[in-house]
Amino acid sequence: MLLLRTVAPCLLLSFLGQQVSLCSGARSADKQTGKAQRSDNNGAASGRGKFSTRDKMQCTWSATVVGDAVKLPVRCENLEARIKGGVTDLQCEYNAKPATCPGYLSDPRGFWKQVARAFKRLQSKVCRDERALVRAGMCKRAPKDAHFKLDISTSVVAAQSGGPEPAPPRPPRPTLPTTTGNGTGPTSCTKRADHHKTAVEYCSSSWASVCSFFLSMLQSEDC
């Protein structure tokens, strides 16, 4: 009886110690899992940045997770071009599956820093050249779909015309009538019929042709 009273507390303490150890280990594992999940879920959500190009375009981008893919909408604007003329706005979207790159999961902050530098290197190719990929340096050996590629169907370029207003077109010059060799005016052949009528009135029908001939010689305006 005395032995039972001595052993029972020891067994109880041992059992309680095992339960505490199991609970502590489970909590630690849950914390690690939660941390990994938060890192995975927030990796793309925290991807955002801005850059500028040599032609004074100010650009911003922000990542959005869609399934196993990541979409990168990009928007650029140039306020000076709204006054002086030129390209004022750019909009487009880049797509990739960066999860195929190990660095994206292990170091998401470093991954997005490298993406930001890659955008700066594109310069005038941003939203225009679908062959120019946005590559993170840590993903050089990753599959091609790990790099962001432009969806050319989403590219929109807006331009503002600038400078002086174009001069209105000049009205066409009036067409001058054709003149005769002595510059007296347009040629008219209607007076020949008048000569024949006059000749019929003042001459007999047999002499009408001769009279008409002489009348035409006397009047210099005839054709």
Rank of each mutant, 00 (worst) to 15 (best):
M1Y: 09
L2V: 05
L3S: 13
T6G: 01
P9E: 04
P9K: 02
L13W: 10
G17T: 07
C23M: 14
G25I: 10
A29K: 12
A29H: 08
D30E: 09
G34L: 15
R38C: 03
S39H: 05
N41I: 11
A45V: 14
R48F: 14
G49S: 05
S52N: 11
S52C: 06
T53L: 05
D55N: 11
D55M: 08
K56V: 13
K56F: 13
Q58K: 14
C59P: 04
C59Q: 07
V65F: 06
A69L: 12
A69C: 08
V70K: 00
V70P: 00
K71A: 14
L72A: 04
V74W: 05
V74H: 04
C76T: 00
E77W: 14
L79V: 11
A81S: 10
R82P: 07
G86T: 03
G86V: 01
Q91E: 14
Q91A: 15
C92L: 06
Y94W: 05
N95I: 15
A96S: 06
K97E: 03
P98S: 05
P98G: 03
P98F: 03
P98K: 01
A99T: 08
C101N: 05
P102R: 07
P102T: 03
G103D: 09
Y104I: 00
P108F: 11
R109Q: 14
F111P: 02
W112P: 01
Q114L: 06
V115S: 00
L122T: 09
L122E: 14
Q123A: 11
R128A: 15
D129N: 06
A132R: 02
G137M: 09
G137H: 15
M138S: 08
M138C: 05
C139Y: 00
K140C: 06
K140I: 09
R141S: 15
A142R: 04
P143M: 00
P143E: 00
D145Q: 05
F148L: 10
D151C: 08
D151Y: 08
V156M: 00
A158I: 12
A158L: 15
S161G: 03
G163S: 02
P164M: 01
P164N: 02
R170M: 04
T175F: 03
P177D: 02
T180C: 10
T184K: 15
P186D: 12
P186R: 15
T187M: 14
C189D: 13
C189G: 10
C189I: 12
K191M: 12
R192G: 07
R192S: 08
D194Y: 09
H195P: 01
H195M: 08
H196S: 13
A199H: 04
V200Q: 11
Y202A: 06
Y202G: 01
C203L: 08
S204Q: 05
S205W: 06
S209C: 09
S209M: 13
S209H: 13
S209L: 12
S220M: 14
S220L: 07
E221W: 11
E221D: 15
